[in-house]
C-alpha cells in the first residue's frame, strides 16, 4: 500500500516534469500548418525536420552554439579552480581579513547583479570588452566565484582535518596533501560545482544581451532573444532552438549526475 502510494506520487511527478519537454519536442517536429491548427494533435501527424534545418540555414545557430560552449566551459573551469583553492583556505586557515572576505563574498550572493548592470556596461565599454566573448567570460567568473568558493568551503569542512594531517605526517606538503588526498574525496562536490557554473553561464541572458550585439559574438540566449522580440513568434523554430540548445547541458548533466546525487563525501569518513 505504502509502496503503491509512493510509486503513484513519483509517477505523477515524472509525468508533470516531462510533459512540457515532450510538448516542445513534438512542436518542433510538426509542420507549421499543424502547429497552428485545431484540434491539437498530441502526436505529430507528419514528422518534419524543417524547423531544425531553418535554424542552421537561416540563423547561424552553429556559431551561436560554439560561442556559448566556449564561454561556459572556460568560465566554469576558471570558477571551479578558483573555488577549490579559495574554499580550501577559508575552511582550513584562520588569517586576518578572513571574516571580511567571507562577508564580502556572501554579500554578493544577496545582491542582484542587475543593480550593477548599467555601470558594468560602462566598465566593459571602458575596457573595450563589449561584444567580446572574453568580456562575457570574465563577468561570468566574477558572478560565480563567491558561490563556488562558499560551497567548496562547506565541502572541505565536512572532511576531517585528520585526513590531510595524516598525509602531511607522511611527508607530503600541504599542496600535495590537498591534491592527493583531499581533492579525490571532493570530486563529487567539484563536479557539482563545475556543472552548476557551466549551466549558469550557458543560461545567462541579461548580461549577454547587454554586452553582446554583434553577430559573431552572440551566444544562444542572445540569438533566441532576438526571436521573441520579433512581432510574431515562429514557434516551430523556437521549439527547435530550445531542443538544440538544451542538448549540451543535458549530456553533461547525465554524465556527472551520479556524482551530484551520490552525495558529497560519502565513504571518506567511514574509510
Amino acid at each position: 500500500m505504502r509502496r503503491l502510494a509512493k510509486g503513484t506520487v513519483l509517477a505523477v511527478w515524472l509525468l508533470i516534469t516531462l510533459f512540457p519537454l515532450y510538448w516542445i519536442t513534438v512542436t518542433s517536429l510538426k509542420p507549421k500548418a499543424e502547429i497552428f491548427s485545431m484540434p491539437l494533435r498530441y502526436w505529430p501527424g507528419e514528422v518534419t525536420f524543417e524547423h531544425y534545418a531553418d535554424l542552421f540555414s537561416f540563423a547561424d545557430f552553429g556559431a551561436y552554439l560554439l560561442n556559448s560552449l566556449l564561454v561556459s566551459l572556460a568560465a566554469a573551469a576558471a570558477v571551479t579552480v578558483i573555488g577549490v583553492l579559495g574554499g580550501y583556505t577559508l575552511a582550513r586557515f584562520s588569517f586576518p581579513g578572513r571574516g571580511a572576505l567571507m562577508l564580502a563574498f556572501l554579500v554578493t550572493q544577496m545582491i542582484p547583479l542587475f543593480i550593477a548592470l548599467g555601470p558594468l556596461y560602462l566598465l566593459m565599454s571602458d575596457l573595450g570588452l563589449l561584444n567580446h566573448l572574453a568580456g562575457l567570460m570574465v563577468v561570468y567568473v566574477a558572478m560565480l566565484v563567491p558561490f563556488a568558493t562558499i560551497i567548496m568551503r562547506g565541502f572541505y569542512e565536512r572532511i576531517p582535518v585528520a585526513l590531510e594531517e595524516a598525509a602531511q605526517v607522511d611527508g607530503a606538503s600541504r599542496l600535495a596533501a590537498m591534491v592527493r588526498v583531499v581533492i579525490p574525496v571532493m570530486l563529487p562536490g567539484i563536479a557539482a560545482t563545475f556543472i552548476f557554473a557551466f549551466v549558469q553561464c550557458w543560461n545567462e541572458l541579461f548580461l549577454a544581451i547587454t554586452f553582446i550585439d554583434s553577430e559573431d559574438a552572440k551566444t544562444i540566449p542572445v540569438a533566441m532573444n532576438s526571436f521573441i522580440t520579433q512581432y510574431d513568434i515562429d514557434w516551430g523554430s523556437m521549439a527547435a532552438a530550445t531542443v538544440v540548445s538544451v542538448i549540451p547541458t543535458l549530456v553533461l548533466f547525465a554524465v556527472i549526475r551520479r556524482y551530484i546525487v551520490e552525495g558529497l563525501t560519502a565513504g571518506a569518513v567511514k574509510g
Binding site: 519537454l21 545567462e204 541572458l205 547541458t249 548533466f253 546525487v261
Partner: peptide, 16 residues
C-alpha cells in the same frame, strides 16, 4: 529524468 529541467535555462523554461 526528473532532474532534467534543471539543465534548462530560465529563459527557455519561460518560452516553453
Amino acid at each position: 529524468w526528473v532532474f532534467f529541467p534543471w539543465a534548462m535555462s530560465g529563459f527557455l523554461i519561460g518560452l516553453l
